[in-house]
Design a protein around this nucleic acid. Sequence first.
DNA 1: GATCCTCGAGTTCG
DNA 2: CTCGAGGATC
Length: 676
Amino acid sequence: MIPDDVIRERVERLRQVVRYHSYRYHVLDDPEISDAEYDALMVELKELEAAHPELVTPDSPTQRVGAEPLPEFEKVQHRRPLLSLDNAFDGEEVRAWEKRVLRLLGNGAGVNYTVEPKIDGLAVSLRYENGLLVQGATRGNGFVGEDVTQNLRTIIAIPLRIPVVGDESPPRYLEARGEVYMPRDRFDQMNQRREAEEKRPFANPRNAAAGSVRQLDPSITATRPLSVFMYAVGEVEGASLATQCDALSFLRRMGFPTAANIARCDTLDEVLDLYGQWMAQRDDLNYDADGVVIKVDSLEQQDLLGEVSHAPRWAIAFKFPAHEGITRLVRIGVNVGRTGSLNPYAELEPMVVGGVTIRHATLHNEADIHRKDIREGDTVIVKRAGDVIPQVVAPLTELRSGQEEVFEMMKTCPACGEQVVKPEDEVMYYCINASCPAQLVGRVGHFASRGAMDIEGFGERLAQAFVENGLLVDVVDFYYLRRDDLLSLEGFADQSADNLLAAIEASKNRPLWRLITGLGIRGVGGVVAQLLTRHFASMDELMGASQEGLEEIEGLGPHTAQSVVDFFSQGRNRRLIEKLRRADVRMTRLAEEEAREEGPLTGQTFVITGTLPTMSQEVAAEYIEAQGGRVTSSVSRNTSYLLSGERPGGAKVERAKELGVPIIGEDDLRRLVDGA
DNA sequence: GATCCTCGAGTTCG
DNA sequence: CTCGAGGATC
């Protein structure tokens, strides 16, 4: 039998160790042990507590989970109100605010400012007595909030007991204020898991955080990856603080997480400069920030300035331009692509996001629409993925009137009216009418596009017009167009006709892989086409290839091989090739297509992101390939370098950091080539 | 059979 | 950028 005091000591020791590692992980972001090791410590502690319930104390790390559900939240009267902030949307408004501050403080007053990120989460107030968390509340209306103590106790970043560090002991009383939020990476993971479990994903981290804190059952909150940033001391007894900076460093010493990179400024110009820096890096942060909060640093000056009814005069929120917004989804439309796929898109009530008016957003496919439960008439959250492509994130189901319509894919093609087909085990619906006008437009557009035959000046609009007027029925018709045909089109004059004819003429001598790409064989894009020209010297050789011969090529599987064989087995396609040949379109590969160049970058794989100083992404890719390197589109373990320029894509940079892939600039690339 | 990596295809706005 | 899906690999 083990003596009680040995167990008691072991339990205490375990608690200390668990608290310490939890602090390293959640507050310092710098864990010393693995998650599994941490879990093992936790398991031992739980087992000992289960065997000796008399040793369980309310501040034990195990007590973060599993409290009984509350029937409803108690109301909490805040001892000092949690006010909201006035907003500024441009520098002028911030300057006006400063002018008022200086006027109220009187001439000659020296004022410093702090600049902090404005975290988009849920504001909370935490009360500690002699270092123990006694109450946690939501902001509510600012005067009365909800008692969510049991839920906040499950958030590991919130100390249940303020640690004693060095010789500084916890204050007798502390009311600390902060923002509960969900880290973006954890939010993404959680949503992926929810989707796997066929639960509805959360629209954004803010909603997820707010919803999780206001759960009636704390054991649900405990499963949500929440964290907190503290940003102010509401009241304190037993410590003296002179400035906001003091308050923040005090909070850090007391074991609370605060946002990184909070700075103090002497002038408003510095403040505005910092605002710009925060805005530039807002997408790289692991939390959502919708602006910065500017505060007068001196607490004495804060008192002098006081507050108006709803907001303090000593602080202002300088908001970022939003790149997420709410609007109405008026209708779900369907486009037909060159492959015949029916592609649904959202028609939105126009709305400005990130300085651009959004009217449409792709919806990918029917399954995706149903998974997200998006209905016609819904109010939806729209954001710009990677700051560019509009995306419908989720509907706000609370705002439904009941009039919303569940989307169902049509049975006939919206372009030609023919029957629509959905292959078994595929997500997309297809129009299989080979002469469907929408497909025709797509096909000729694809043939002329930059990735294929690169016919300059011939874009989607012309494709539409040429097909409508019967000038193009097939891609081969490009090479039989007459000048008179072009002039018959509205808006086509001598010059533009000559330019287009010259561009078409120039396209006759493109590398073979471009022609193969342009044919639009299913599953064959630029990369696969180049793979093919490495094994076949001419169109004739490719047409003569057997299924088995194709499958032997590394990188080609049965599916793609089948697709190629099918294409060339159709008489219509063989006739198309003959007509192209008669029009003098190149049918044999160029010398440079025979083998990949050997060079200093042989064996290296690059991914490109952002705007490079002197070359476009395309030119950079050609350069890398000419030196023997490979360029792919997504960062993986196989990536040697991420070549990054101005305004890089956040996802690629993040993934590169995660995998330890070196991030280089254009000059580094040149050094790699010259040095090796 | 599962998992990771790549490619293809469609996409918005100015 | 995003998703689906083919291909390679263990």
